[in-house]
Computed example of a mutant assay.
Amino acid sequence: MRSRAFGRTGHTVGEIGFGAWAIGAAWGTVDDGESVAALHAALDAGLDFIDTADVYGDGHSERLIARVLKERGGKRPFVATKAGRRLPRQEVAGYTAQNLQEWIDRSRRNLEVETLDLLQLHCPPTDAYYHPELFEHLERLVERGAIARYGVSVERVEEALKAIEYPNVASVQIIFNMFRLRPAQLFFAEAQRRGVAVIARVPLASGMLSGKFRPDTRFEESDHRNFNRNGEAFDVGETFSGVPYEVGLAAVEKLRPLVPEGATLAQLALRWILMHEAVSVVIPGAKNPQQALANIAAADLPALSDEAMGEVARIYEQDIKPYVHQRW
C-alpha cells in the first residue's frame, strides 16, 4: 500500500486505515471473532493505521485492538484513539485536566500501552476550540509521556480551521466523502500549509456509498443508522453524513455509472478520497476480513479521470449540497 506523510509528525502511514467504531458498538450485531479476523487480515495486508475511541463499545474496540496486537507481536501499527464523549453532557467545563487524565489513563490500560500514539478530542463542543487552557492540558499530558501527540476530531469545517491555529495540533479527523465536499476547499489548503495531518472519516457515508441500501432496507435497533437517523443520540452528520436517506439513495444511482469495471461503488468512493493529496489516511470500517481487504484494494484502483471527478462534483452540487454544505 502507498504511504503518505502524517502531517509534520515525521511518521508515514498507509493511505487506507482501519476505522474501529463498527467493531465496538452502534453498527448492529458484531461478532468478536469476525472483528479480530478483520484486524488480522488488514494488518497482514500491510495496513498500519487504526483509529478507535474510548466510547466505542465502552472501551471494547480498544481492548480488541490490544488483543490482536498482542497476538501478533512485532512492530505495532499507529493506533489513534479519542476522548471526551464519556461526559454525560457535552460542555466545555467537563474537559478538565483531571477528566482528560482519567480518560487517557483508561485508554492506555485498554490498549495496553504506556504512551498513546495519538489522542484526539472527540468532537467536543464548538466553544472548546476557543479555550486555550484545554490544549494546554494536552501539552502537559505530552510532557508526562501519557500521549505522544494530540489532534482533534471535528464535526464542522469551522472547528477544524480554529483547531489548527494551535501550533501543536498534529491532526484533524473530519467527515470527507463524495457527499461532504466542503473540507476540500479552504480547510485542506490550510492543513497542508501548516503541516497538519488529515484523517478522513465516514468515507462511505455510513455505508450509503456502498450502493447496497434500498428504500426498504432495515437496520437493527442497536445500529445508529436506525436510532440516530434524525440526530437523536449525537450529531446527525455522523449518520449518512447528514444526507436524508432517500436523497442519498437517489444520488448513489447517479454515481453508479462511474464505477470502474471489476470494482465496487465503495472502492470508487475510497479512491475518490485518495485523489485529494491533503488527506493523510482514510479510515473505512470493517466488520469482517472480506470488507477489510476490499477497502484496502481500493488503493490499487487507477486514478480517477477529470471527467469522473467533475461528475461527482456535479452530483454533489445538484443533489447533496443544499442539505449539508453550510451546516458542516
Rank of each mutant, 00 (worst) to 15 (best):
F6Q: 05
H11E: 15
H11T: 15
G17M: 01
G17K: 04
G19V: 06
W21R: 14
A22R: 08
I23C: 10
W27H: 13
W27I: 04
T29Q: 14
T29R: 14
V36C: 00
A38F: 06
A38H: 05
H40E: 07
H40P: 05
A42V: 11
L43P: 11
L43S: 12
D44N: 07
D44P: 10
A53I: 06
D54V: 11
V55C: 04
D58S: 15
G59N: 09
S61T: 01
L64N: 03
V68Q: 08
R72A: 06
P77N: 09
V79R: 05
E91K: 13
Q101L: 14
Q101G: 14
W103I: 02
I104S: 09
D105R: 15
L111M: 07
V113C: 07
V113S: 04
D117G: 01
L119Q: 12
Q120K: 01
H122Q: 09
H122E: 06
C123P: 01
T126L: 13
A128D: 11
Y130F: 15
Y130N: 14
Y130P: 11
Y130C: 14
E133W: 02
E133I: 02
E133H: 12
H137K: 01
R140D: 15
A146F: 13
I147A: 01
G151Y: 00
V157P: 03
I164A: 01
V169E: 01
S171C: 04
I175W: 04
F176P: 01
F176Y: 15
R180G: 11
P183I: 01
Q185T: 13
L186T: 15
E190G: 10
Q192K: 12
R193D: 11
R194D: 02
G195N: 02
V196N: 03
V198N: 08
A200P: 08
V202D: 11
A205P: 09
M208C: 04
M208Y: 08
G211N: 08
G211M: 01
K212P: 10
K212S: 15
D216A: 14
R218M: 15
E220V: 08
S222A: 13
H224K: 14
N226Q: 13
N228M: 10
R229V: 02
E232T: 09
A233K: 13
A233D: 12
F234D: 00
D235T: 08
G242K: 03
V243Y: 11
A251H: 10
K254Y: 09
K254Q: 12
P260G: 11
A263Y: 01
A263E: 04
T264M: 00
T264S: 00
L265V: 11
A266P: 07
L268N: 02
A269I: 03
I283Y: 06
P289W: 08
Q290Y: 14
Q291T: 00
Q291A: 05
A292K: 02
A297H: 06
A297M: 01
A298N: 07
L301G: 13
A303D: 14
E307A: 14
R314S: 03
I315K: 08
I315D: 01
Y316H: 00
E317C: 03
D319K: 02
D319A: 07
V324E: 11
